[in-house]
Design a binder for these strands. Structure first.
Lengths: 102, 102
DNA sequence: TTGATAGGCAAGTGAGCAATTGCCTATCCT
DNA sequence: AGGATAGGCAATTGCTCACTTGCCTATCAA
């Protein structure tokens, strides 16, 4: 898959992993909602733009999907891309070794 | 788990993921063997020290284990740490939300 | 013991990335 | 219309990290 690099890079940041945790707990959150939770529950002093950029990275990796409604933009977790991680090394592949998956 | 950060950071680099691929295909390789394979099979122009540093990162993440025999040091893949990735978000957890896993 | 092989340590460099700051657009309410 | 709310864009900064270079140690074979 071509987006393997985006996926792993997205997961490399602890703040982004916390965002995924929050979206796993409650889906359909807005940017401000996520900001509040990061600040309240996780004591993360980060600006709104910072969170927005993190969400963009997560969306590029396919881990977060968004839907607009009026002035609100809701964010939903998509765990589908995570499956390829486990499948890449956990399953001993008997087929031909593939070239440059990353 | 405390080493979550090490794990994800280790996986963030495409060269390191390729090394894991090679170790998955053939375990117990030496540093020079891995260097050769990266150069031959994957056209990766990287110095021996570069590969050595990557292996150190992978070992810190628990993804690679080593054993010394004379002047040789053999490297083995350990996929155990990968399981926590899937379990973190794929399983909808009903227990209390944990604080600061990363 | 000399040379060759396998690997390690440490400093330096360059690029990528997280995060901030400042300003702008769009939607809703009164 | 005007203010408030929700979000976006772009430039800048500082730091982390991948990679190289140079030199050192350890093991084995002649």
């Amino acid at each position: 898959m071509v987006v393997a690099d985006d996926l792993f890079k997205a997961l490399a940041d602890p703040t982004r992993r916390t965002i995924l945790d929050e979206l796993a707990e409650k889906s359909g959150q807005t940017l401000f909602e996520i900001c509040s939770r990061l600040s309240m529950k996780h004591q993360l002093g980060i600006s709104r733009q910072g969170v927005s950029q993190h969400l963009a990275v997560l969306e590029a990796a396919g881990l977060v999907e968004t839907r607009r409604e009026g002035r609100y933009k809701f964010h939903d977790l998509n765990t589908a891309p995570l499956r390829q991680i486990a499948e890449r090394w956990l399953v001993p592949d008997t087929s031909e070794p593939e070239e440059s998956t990353s």
